[in-house]
Design a protein around this nucleic acid. Structure first.
Lengths: 197, 197
DNA sequence: TATAATTAACTGAACGTTCGTTTAGGCAGG
DNA sequence: CCTGCCTAAACGAACGTTCAGTTAATTATA
């Protein structure tokens, strides 16, 4: 962050996102963030009411940034399996490129404040989830659409949530961190299941 | 916690587990824990070197407590699909009964300290993971054993990781929180996939 | 066009509180 | 009398936040 230019809300948020992701809400202090931005702690309170507002805005901004394009891309395709491949491919690529975003998502799910959670769910998560649920329904399968949507998301996300532990477990190989490998595995497993006839 | 009996390590750990799960490492202070135990903060330092040791011991103890029986149960069955059903059923039931345990697992994955992570992985996670990986291999499918193990675990776990958000999303029903519903959904999806022939 | 008024962005210092941890000493049971 | 378990009190550091005042840029006025 340049010491010359004045900082605005967005500059602060873009610096706060990876820090909140790595350290968590309690783990990132206003002093630490301020020093990274290059200002005094008091300056943060000129842009945000309090730490809570800064956190919610950071998560919202990160999510909107990442999911801006996928919704229109998914709407374009109409063949169910093709749409699934497009979504899984996009999701895997996003998580693979930006580990901080994945960690932020994981932290939000652990948030102990129900009000914060409700706010973030309604304003930022709902739209994308509905699109995935709609994708699940298009398969006209026997599965409950809600549970199927969660399964699809979890199946992709969990490979990244465990990335730091996985490398210490048996059977781990370098290829498992590649986006293509994970995408192909997830797509194939979702498509065919374990009993490939 | 009785005020009469003397407290030992295990009493403290069993009180610390749900608190660490709900509040996180930074979120739970030694003073808060001490007051719940019914002792002075200094008393905790009689049983544990520092907060870090207390946390690691709490996670280890929680994990060993929960996974004590499943390993032998799984080894008894030999038909792959039956073993999968046994594992999924057990895992779903454990997570459903004890939400704190699930949250603790999730927090461990977010731990920013690599040394803590490594210690916990080798001493507590490795054995159960190997058993699941072995289960995946028994299907003699085309899938990579390591990736398949992660997929199976994630597919179950994610339904619980999202439980507090899920209820705010469309398509949510009360049945989705029942252990049987989730177990049946996951087993069936793993078995057959989306394209049920 | 020069100058005054207004505003946004920020600093330096401090507030009360809570944090992890240490130290010295007390007290009961073997 | 010793050892295990504990208390009371305090340490310095870090926490979120506030407040009075300063600087720099923008806008309005003459």
């Amino acid at each position: 962050m340049s010491r010359l230019r004045k900082k605005n809300r967005l500059d602060i948020l873009n610096l706060a996102i990876p820090l909140f992701a790595r350290l968590g809400y309690e783990g990132l202090s206003m002093r630490n963030l301020a020093s990274k931005v290059g200002v005094t702690p008091a300056a943060l309170y000129h842009h945000f009411k309090d730490k809570d507002e800064l956190y919610v805005d950071a998560v919202s901004h990160a999510f909107e940034q990442k999911t801006a394009d996928i919704k229109t891309v998914m709407a374009a395709e109409d063949e169910p399996m093709k749409r699934l491949e497009v979504f899984v491919g996009w999701f895997v690529r996003v998580l693979n490129k930006d580990q901080d975003f994945q960690k932020l998502l994981q932290r939000v799910m652990l948030d102990s404040d129900p009000q914060r959670m409700q706010k973030l769910t309604k304003t930022t998560f709902l739209e994308l989830f509905s699109a995935i649920q709609n994708l699940g329904e298009s398969f006209k399968s026997k599965y409950d659409p809600h549970l199927l949507a969660i399964s699809i998301i979890g199946l992709v996300l969990y490979h990244f949530e465990t990335s730091s532990v996985r490398s210490l477990l048996p059977g781990s190989r370098a290829a498992h961190d590649k986006a293509d490998t994970i995408a192909r595995h997830v797509t194939s497993l979702l498509e065919n299941g374990l009993l490939t006839h």
